[in-house]
């Protein structure tokens, strides 16, 4: 069997998720045994138009992005939305909090006219996506799992269970017990509660579970005396893009 040819692309993002791949360490050698990396700007100069799997980082934020991602989709047999920006819009979605013209002026000043901008989209709001790797940055073991599934052409679903589940299994002290707002209860797990294990809160970078309960959450906040703004401001950081419209 021919090794699958894998190419990395980036749109609006920090390329930190690709760095996570470059930083895989020894495991990277095992990855290279099973795939041919044919394009990866972060670590190599070669370029090609011939690839099987497109690993795409970043969100769609300009008309040019739309054209480019459509081209990539045409050439790739498999498309993986890689990291929060690609999978759920991520922090680029904060732009959607503002009027587009206003925010363009705020960023580019008098040169705003030279730049075209559109509302931030996750990849699947523009093209069909086959696999998702969530997280900001991606959780490396999660990426390896998705990659193995993609190579074998078998579907992969991130289990629709909150971060709390894994957090409890790691026996972390609950942030709410400390009076700190945390997005764990409404955020899709699979990261092994990475942040909370290290003493941080969950910022919801993996997107929301399918059925977050609004009423229940409001009641929890009331009980712990946590203002709802603490939650909404954190929520808007990663989850603004998919808020108003459903995924395609």
């Amino acid at each position: 069997m021919r090794k699958k040819r894998i190419a990395f692309f980036d749109f609006t993002s920090c390329e930190g998720c690709q760095l996570q791949v470059a930083n895989l360490g020894e495991v990277l050698l095992d990855v290279l045994d099973i795939v041919d990396v044919v394009m990866f700007r972060e670590v190599m100069s070669e370029k090609t138009e011939d690839y099987d799997i497109a690993v795409v980082e970043g969100s769609i934020t300009t008309p040019h992005d739309v054209e480019r991602i459509k081209e990539i989709r045409k050439k790739a047999k498999v498309l993986i939305a890689f990291g929060s920006c690609a999978a759920i819009g991520g922090i680029n979605g904060m732009k959607n909090n503002f009027d587009l013209d206003e925010i363009k002026k705020y960023v580019y000043g008098k040169n705003a006219g030279y730049f075209e901008t559109i509302k931030t989209s996750a990849l699947d709001q523009v093209v069909k996506v086959d696999y998702y790797v969530y997280g900001c940055p991606i959780y490396p073991p999660d990426f390896l799992k998705v990659l193995k599934h993609a190579i074998q052409d078998i579907p992969y679903t991130t289990k629709d269970v909150a971060v709390c589940a894994e957090c409890k299994l790691n026996e972390n002290e609950c942030m709410y017990d400390k009076g700190i707002a945390c997005l764990g209860p409404v955020t899709k797990g699979g990261c092994n509660s990475w942040c909370i294990n290290s003493g941080n809160i969950c910022y919801g970078c993996r997107g929301m579970v399918k059925e977050p309960v609004k009423n229940g959450c409001m009641e929890v906040l009331n009980k712990y005396n946590i203002p709802v703004e603490w939650i909404t401001s954190k929520f808007n950081m990663y989850n603004k893009t998919l808020e108003s419209e459903d995924k395609k």
Binding site: D30, V161, A165, L169, P185, V186, P212, V213, C217
Partner: peptide
């Protein structure tokens, strides 16, 4: 909230899931 905390911390909850995990080779 379906956070699953109640069952994970229960001393008598034993339900489990099983799945294959392929190595990178």
């Amino acid at each position: 909230l379906s956070c699953t905390n109640c069952t994970n911390v229960c001393p008598t909850c034993y339900c489990y899931d099983m799945g294959y995990d392929t190595d990178l080779d």
